[in-house]
Nucleic acid binder design. Structure first.
Lengths: 343, 343
DNA sequence: CTGAAAGCGCTTACAG
DNA sequence: CTGAAAGCGCTTACAG
């Protein structure tokens, strides 16, 4: 049997009230320093742990944050969100209760019921992909969206700065001397990120005074292991010296096509990915320069918004989701253009 | 304010006891079918959800399984364990409380306290890698280890059938006609799996009546993006027609080295990986034949052992961890030997 | 300053 | 068959 507050109180010879206050550090006037020490010692000695259910029942609070995700928790990409969020939660002495919905409305309902059953009042709704999110009914007030945003923008949300990531990539290439920089995109109809990243591409070129050549923008089907018409077209028609890709998988497609044509990377062609999937980016040859998605930053932001009042209050009131910087990770797939032609 | 049992009882005009029994399906003799229906309707109407803390406090049970992991939850490889475990848990109307310890003894202690605080009586201890595990003190009796085993084998545990996976791979290659099959291993001192997989390699060859040639066994440093002496040596000295690798990353190293030497896969060299990292295995060209780690199966096994008494009782009492089959996933990196020499 | 008491919302053994 | 009562282990407002 687990020892209870009473057990500690009896052993020390004080009331349960006193033990409770002392152990929770709210013993303002209560108990001499000496008694306090004895209480703490006895608790340790008996290996006492407060019963969370009793405490929560009484206070109607629970130190846990709900983490609802469509599929995120089961998606390797975004595991960092979880890691960062649970670490941040620990800072506030909170715990993460994870519920996966698999995007099924029925499981969304059970998820909400589970949270209500446990009296959870703070919830992170995490999407596995930057997208417009339709929240299930019945979620608590203290709510935050990660890697997505609500239809009506009524819920605080954070997303990666997709455009900014591409801007960094393009500037990097321009600074290396590139002028003909291709952009290999996902179908913008299929991903909000595609639209935003393309915007970043345009903006970055304009900022550097380079005209946008439509021939340099191509879409890829992004199917692994399959030769890709988009890449071929881009390479043949527009003859870029560098290509920025919508994601790392596409970048491997470019590697493959470059190999077929006898182009070496980065001597004949610089390549930049997006996502920084470690497994892919460090495994390809040469290792891939790519934009890192700020998963950890988003997870930490979410917890602070939920649990740190001062942080929440000081948070920007600008409309729309908070942008988290997506930094460029420079590896070896980018270099000065035409390097192989030099001696 | 959330409605309570009393609210439902008052509205229907019965006692809280009756409502409780009816809602939990334990209304043996209690209440006519009609009253039962009215109770259920009213509960729905009021959007009543039972207070889990009150219930747990009273019954001293909680429908949640603790999931402690050294780092697993934050490791893309093994996310499947979690997905499968939480789905299986849902079947038993249980929820998963995940705690990451980061392998720090101090956080292991807090983890155990958290579980005790919540009155959790069933725990999965998940390792991120097949290994001998030292369990923290104070874990509950109903305990199970995934992808590892206890020092003294006193706790039920499950691990992948590492040897069996390699046996399947080697048999597949022999059946294709290969006789000179190389094995590129991790340092056995660094991973239990390495030892077991090597055993599988030897066993499979013997089963097919092929002598084990020590020249065909090599160790790789397994550093991504780096040319690898082990691979080169294996290729030069032993001239295998096929290579089985300790993992998928190493397989990409073989791809790279093969490319340098002008060997095509699978025509000149068949390659088999291990782990089935989808991202890697489907992205390389040609897509990689590899052995799948039974993460989902292990996660499900864990939950059934913990929550399904009949399953537990019928479980084998053989010593050592339960082996989960690691099936071969055949893609395009394996084929008959010498295919490129044929017309 | 400290203890006794009430009460959070359930479940269950028991009395009627 | 059903309701009233007790009690799970806390926390807190209150009386002394």
């Amino acid at each position: 049997m687990q020892p209870t507050l009473r057990d500690v109180a009896d052993k020390v010879g004080v009331s349960a009230a006193t033990v409770s206050m002392v152990l929770r550090g709210r013993a303002d006037g209560r108990a001499s320093a000496e008694t306090q020490a004895r209480i703490r010692d006895t608790a340790r000695e008996l290996n006492y742990v407060s019963n969370g259910h009793a405490a929560s029942l009484r206070t109607k609070k629970t130190p846990t944050v709900g983490f609802i995700s469509d599929r995120i928790a089961t998606t390797p990409h975004a595991v960092e969100i979880i890691r960062a969020a649970s670490e941040a939660a620990r800072t506030f002495e909170h715990t993460l209760l994870m519920v996966n919905t698999g995007e099924l409305p029925s499981t969304e309902l059970t998820a909400v019921r589970e949270l209500r059953r446990d009296g959870i009042e703070s919830v992170i709704y995490a999407s596995m992909q930057h997208r417009r999110v339709t929240l299930p009914e019945g979620l608590p007030e203290n709510l935050v969206i990660v890697d997505g945003f609500a239809d009506d923008h009524a819920v605080p949300a954070t997303v990666p700065d997709e455009a900014g990531g591409v801007v960094a990539a393009v500037h990097h290439l321009v600074d290396l001397g590139h002028r003909r920089i291709g952009f290999l995109n996902e179908d913008p109809a299929r991903a909000i990120a595609a639209e935003l990243r393309l915007e970043g591409y345009r903006k970055a070129l304009e900022e550097r005074g380079i005209a946008v050549d439509p021939d340099l923008i191509e879409e890829s089907r992004n199917e692994p292991g399959v030769s890709d018409a988009g890449v071929a077209k881009l390479l043949e028609r527009a003859r870029p010296t560098a290509i920025v890709c919508f994601n790392d998988e596409m970048a491997t497609g470019v590697y493959r096509e470059a190999g077929r044509r006898g182009l070496s990377i980065p001597e004949d062609l610089s390549v930049v990915g997006f996502d920084n999937l470690e497994l892919v980016a460090t495994l390809v040859d040469p290792p891939l320069t790519t934009v890192r998605l700020p998963h950890a930053e988003m997870g930490e932001w979410a917890i602070r918004m939920l649990l740190d009042e001062r942080y929440r209050d000081s948070a920007t009131t600008a409309p729309g989701p908070v942008l988290q910087p997506a930094p460029l990770v420079i590896r070896s797939s980018t270099g000065p253009p035409g390097a192989s032609m030099r001696p």
